[in-house]
């Protein structure tokens, strides 16, 4: 019997990550990366932001925001290297780097969110 492929599962993570990145990342990056540093809008204080982030719902939200897009990245980056640069002989190493990175990133995010006082 053939080993069942885990490709559909990885594709699902890719797809979910694509939705999360598309829906949430533009507004987050616009505010924290451009509007606040450039003074276009008044940034919330550290104290207020910490109060928001401390809430369990925000922690769960941030875990999703960090985790799924990493699996989205892993999938796309893997195929960019595969098709774009045609480095197929390194396929296994690339897979370990991409999905390993996504798993590590998720673990790091969980740890950071868990250790918020």
């Amino acid at each position: 019997m053939n080993k069942r492929s885990n490709e559909p599962f990885l594709w699902m993570l890719f797809s979910a990550g694509g939705v999360v990145s598309a829906m949430l990342m533009p507004v987050h990056l616009f505010l924290f990366g451009l509007a606040f540093p450039l003074g276009w809008l008044d940034a919330p204080s550290q104290e207020r932001l910490l109060a928001i982030v401390r809430h369990p719902v925000t922690r769960a939200y941030l875990l999703v925001l960090c985790s799924l897009p990493l699996f989205h990245w892993a999938h796309r980056f893997r195929f960019t290297l595969y098709d774009g640069l045609q480095i197929k002989h390194l396929n296994e190493l690339i897979n370990i780097f991409c999905y390993g990175g996504a798993v590590l990133g998720t673990a790091l995010a969980a740890y950071l969110l868990w250790s918020i006082p």
């Binding site: 990550g17 990056l29 990366g33 925001l65 897009p69 990245w73 796309r76 980056f77 995010a109």
Partner: peptide, 12 residues
């Protein structure tokens, strides 16, 4: 996708 990964790093 590379920039998506960067945004995650920035968030962390």
């Amino acid at each position: 996708s590379v920039f998506v990964a960067w945004i995650v790093v920035l968030t962390l």
